[in-house]
Design a protein around this nucleic acid. Structure first.
Lengths: 170, 170
DNA sequence: CTAGTCATGTCAACAACGCTGACGTATTGT
DNA sequence: ACAATACGTCAGCGTTGTTGACATGACTAG
């Protein structure tokens, strides 16, 4: 069970023990609750949930994205996404415009109202992230991102890589 | 908006830019999907979900724990937890025994069958974590955990700290 | 041009898993 | 004796995921 992995040269790879791996697993569990806590608090007053937050986030990040593209990034069915998009469009937070090149596609944008909510949500989430970053320091932050990237499924890493090097639309 | 934070001595704290924070946020989102993907695949064949996994994990980690303690760690209502526990007990994965000191309490343990499922789930999750750890290296892993710990709510960090230094019951 | 495929939207039904509120029982502590 | 605690449960509801089926309009290959 790899309790004390040894390198080929006999050097101890102590960070790969089951104990260390378990700590990482539990850290992910508890940290993710914190990660979503602040936006969740904002959303519960608005009859929206985490799914709305995700849609808003990625529409903000990729203005004009199509439904199909959003589907691939979020990894849900079109019925699930459609339910969320329908309410966001009905409430005037998201606009859906017919594609000019391909008229089957709908291009999604945040309205001013939607952008305002996005700012409120991401401000809250960034505040916590900033506090954590500052407490841990730049070296830790680099490691944090390295491990997370290595943890992704290939397809998700592909979407991630395509996003992170794009300038923020802020 | 803290676009280019400067230290008091004018040194650039470039890892605290909104851009860096956003990358961390998106990395958390995509990585968490990978984090849960493997156990989810195992569970979907068994009519169980993520909630069952969490219950099994923490009962394994704290054998004999009470319902109230599990409630605090998982951060859900007793009705939610009870629904999960009821099915796990009915299916013979978890045993619930009346407390000896305080007979109001129920002490929860995994049965042999429950322990077998726990091993199958945590093996899958550890495999991915090990691959990620190995790819990122020990320094990155230390940073990974530092940032996650700084990201937790105080109460969750308290539960985390109480757990991680306990030896694994394996 | 016709046939097939694609992008999207929608209806219905269902499951998992959160929640609130209320009530009951047994046990413990004051 | 009385209040508080630990637990279980019923009923109902909301969000978010799923499948399956069907419709429309638009593009594309033959």
């Amino acid at each position: 069970m790899n309790q004390s992995p040894q390198g080929p040269s006999g050097q101890a790879l102590l960070f790969l023990t089951d104990e260390q791996l378990r700590k990482g697993i539990e850290a992910m569990f508890f940290a993710y609750r914190g990660f979503t806590a602040d936006p969740d608090r904002i959303l519960e007053d608005l009859a929206y949930g985490r799914a709305h937050h995700r849609a808003i986030h990625f529409i903000h990040r990729s203005p004009g994205t199509t439904v199909n593209n959003l589907l691939a990034i979020l990894g849900v069915t079109k019925q699930s996404l459609n339910r969320v998009l329908r309410s966001l469009i009905a409430d005037g937070l998201v606009s859906s415009t017919v594609g000019s090149r391909d008229k089957r596609e709908r291009h999604l944008h945040l309205t001013e109202k939607g952008a305002a909510l996005e700012r409120s949500l991401s401000d809250a989430q960034r505040d916590r992230m900033r506090t954590a970053y500052r407490a841990a320091g730049p070296v830790a932050v680099a490691g944090f991102r390295q491990v997370l990237e290595a943890m992704m499924d290939d397809e998700m890493r592909h979407h991630y890589m395509a996003l992170v090097d794009k300038p923020d639309a802020r």
